[in-house]
C-alpha cells in the first residue's frame, strides 16, 4: 500500500514537472513572438508594396518617424514596468516643443534644457497626484492630457508657434537624431538591466506592497519615474521641432496611444512586472512604424489605417495578456 502510494506520488510529480516545463517553453515562445512579428510584417508589406516599403529612400523616411516615438517610449516603458500608464505623453511633447521654440530664439542648448524641464514639470504634476493624492495613474494622466492640450491650443490659437527657423532647421540631420536616440536607449538599457533601478521597477509592477516590504521606497520611485518619463519626452521635443521648425495645435497629438500600441506590439505585458524586457521598446517602436508605413504604401485612407491598427492592437493584447495574474492597472 505504502509502495504503490510512493509510485503514484512520483508519477504525479513527474507530470507536474512536465507541465511546468511546458509553461516555460510557452513563455519563451511568447518572448520571441514580437521579433517574428517584426520580420513577418516587414516582409509581407514589402511584398505587397512590390519592394517599395524597404527601398533605401523609404527606410530613411521610416527612420525619421521612429525617433520621437522610440525616445518617448523609453520613459513610458519605465512607467508601464511599474504597472502604471501615461496618457499625457502627447501633451507633454506639445508643451515641451512650444517651450523649445520660444527659447530657441535665445540659445539652442538653453532651449533643449528648457524642453526637458517643461516635460519633467508635467511629469511631476502626474506623479504628485498619482502618488500623494492616490489617484489612479490613467485618470491623472488623462486629466493632464486634456489640460495641457488645452494650453497648446491656446498658445497656437492665431498661428503656429515659430522657433528660430534658421538655427533649428540647420540641426535637422539624421546623424544627430540617430545619435541622440541611441544615447537615450543605451543609457536607459544600462540602468534598467544592470542596476537595481530596473529590478525595483519590476518588483513594484509585480507586487507593490511586497516591494515596499522588501525595502523599496515605492512612492519615491513612482514619483521620480513620472518626472523622468516627462523629461525624456521633453528631450524628444527637440527632435520633434527640428523636423518642422514650428509647433501647431496638433503637435504630439496621439503620441501616447502610439507609444502604448508600440510597447504592447513589442511584447510588453500591459500590467508590467517581472516579464518586462527592454527589447520591447525597440522592437515595438519599429514594428509600429513599419505597420503604419506599410498601410500607407498600400494606399489606405487614414480612417482605414486607424481601424486596422485598432484591431491589431486588440488582438495582440488579447493574445499576450496573462490571464493568470489578475492585475489591475494602477
Amino acid at each position: 500500500m505504502e509502495n504503490t502510494d510512493a509510485i503514484k506520488n512520483d508519477e504525479v510529480l513527474a507530470a507536474e514537472e512536465k507541465a511546468l516545463k511546458r509553461a516555460v517553453l510557452a513563455s519563451r515562445i511568447r518572448a520571441v513572438l514580437p521579433i517574428i512579428g517584426l520580420v513577418a510584417v516587414s516582409l509581407i508589406f514589402n511584398i505587397l508594396s512590390d519592394g517599395k516599403l524597404l527601398a533605401p529612400m523609404n527606410i530613411k523616411l521610416l527612420m525619421s518617424q521612429v525617433y520621437v516615438t522610440m525616445i518617448a517610449a523609453t520613459g513610458v516603458f519605465f512607467i508601464m514596468t511599474m504597472g502604471g500608464l501615461d496618457f499625457s505623453q502627447g501633451s507633454i511633447l506639445g508643451i515641451a516643443s512650444i517651450v523649445f521654440c520660444f527659447l530657441s530664439k535665445y540659445n539652442i542648448p538653453l532651449a533643449i534644457v528648457g524642453g526637458i524641464c517643461a516635460g519633467a514639470l508635467i511629469g511631476a504634476i502626474n506623479g504628485f497626484f498619482y502618488v500623494k493624492r492616490k489617484v489612479k495613474s490613467f485618470v491623472v494622466t488623462i486629466c493632464t492630457m486634456f489640460l495641457f492640450r488645452g494650453v497648446i491650443e491656446f498658445a497656437t490659437t492665431n498661428a503656429p508657434v515659430q522657433g528660430d527657423i534658421v538655427k533649428t532647421v540647420s540641426l535637422n540631420n539624421d546623424q544627430l537624431k540617430i545619435t541622440i536616440t541611441l544615447i537615450v536607449l543605451i543609457i536607459a538599457f544600462f540602468f534598467f538591466r544592470f542596476t537595481k533601478f530596473g529590478r525595483y521597477l519590476k518588483a513594484i509592477g509585480a507586487g507593490e506592497k511586497a516591494a515596499a516590504f522588501s525595502g523599496i521606497e515605492t512612492d519615491k520611485m513612482k514619483f521620480w519615474v513620472y518626472v523622468l518619463a516627462g523629461a525624456i519626452t521633453g528631450l524628444a521635443a527637440f527632435i520633434n521641432v527640428v523636423k518642422v521648425g514650428s509647433v501647431t495645435a496638433n503637435s504630439g497629438n496621439q503620441l501616447e496611444t502610439q507609444i502604448m500600441i508600440a510597447l504592447v506590439l513589442g511584447g510588453m505585458p500591459i500590467s508590467g512586472g517581472a516579464k518586462v524586457k527592454f527589447e520591447n521598446v525597440v522592437v515595438g517602436s519599429l514594428l509600429y512604424i513599419i505597420l503604419n508605413a506599410g498601410l500607407v504604401t498600400l494606399g489606405l485612407t487614414p480612417a482605414m489605417q486607424q481601424l486596422i491598427e485598432g484591431i491589431v492592437f486588440l488582438i495582440v493584447v488579447a493574445i499576450t495578456s496573462d490571464r493568470n495574474s489578475v492585475q489591475i492597472v494602477k
Binding site: 519590476k202 518588483a203 509585480a206 507586487g207 511586497a210 516591494a211 516590504f213 522588501s214 517581472a274 495574474s325
Partner: peptide, 15 residues
C-alpha cells in the same frame, strides 16, 4: 507583504 508573488524565486531572494 512577504514576497512579490508575480516574480521568480531568484528575484525574490535577491531583492
Amino acid at each position: 507583504e512577504s514576497i512579490v508573488i508575480n516574480e521568480s524565486i531568484g528575484d525574490n531572494i535577491c531583492l
